[in-house]
Amino acid sequence: MKQFIAVFMLFSLFFMFFSCATTGALDSQQSQVQIRNYQTKSFDTSNKNNVLRNVIATMQDLGFIIEKADETLGTVSGYSFKNKTNMTVTVRQQGRQCIVRANAEINNNAVTEPLAYQNFFNALAQSLFLTANDII
């Protein structure tokens, strides 16, 4: 048993130090389609500028500091001290819809939980509603 544990530990160490070093830049645990599926949500509006402004407002509601914003590219990036999260949101227009995609990392790990993105998109939908009705 001791031998097994020793071999296991050695294998773990080997795995930890050598497996990720070279392939890290392209590492992904899920397929591209799978990832895009939960990171993307489309909204029934063609006003890209308005969606981008609401993305910023939502990120502010969630305690993010906006670090980058580019209307031409349609990207907004921010950092949250509260969740220790780095997040980038992109908005692109497709016909009469705007497609919003978010990706985030927490503590040097990618957020791969669809529920987290659902929460973000729910908050964004709420913000779009408030703006559309000029509530606040």
């Binding site: 509601d61 969630l62 927490i106 790990n109 957020v111 729910n122 606040i136």
Partner: peptide, 24 residues
């Protein structure tokens, strides 16, 4: 160690509208 609760991640807190008001 890698497990965390995603249920409350990126959810709006109860006072967010009040905060928006103060900040706007």
């Amino acid at each position: 160690a890698g497990c965390m609760n995603y249920k409350d991640l990126y959810t709006l807190d109860k006072n967010y509208l009040e905060r928006r008001n103060i900040e706007t």
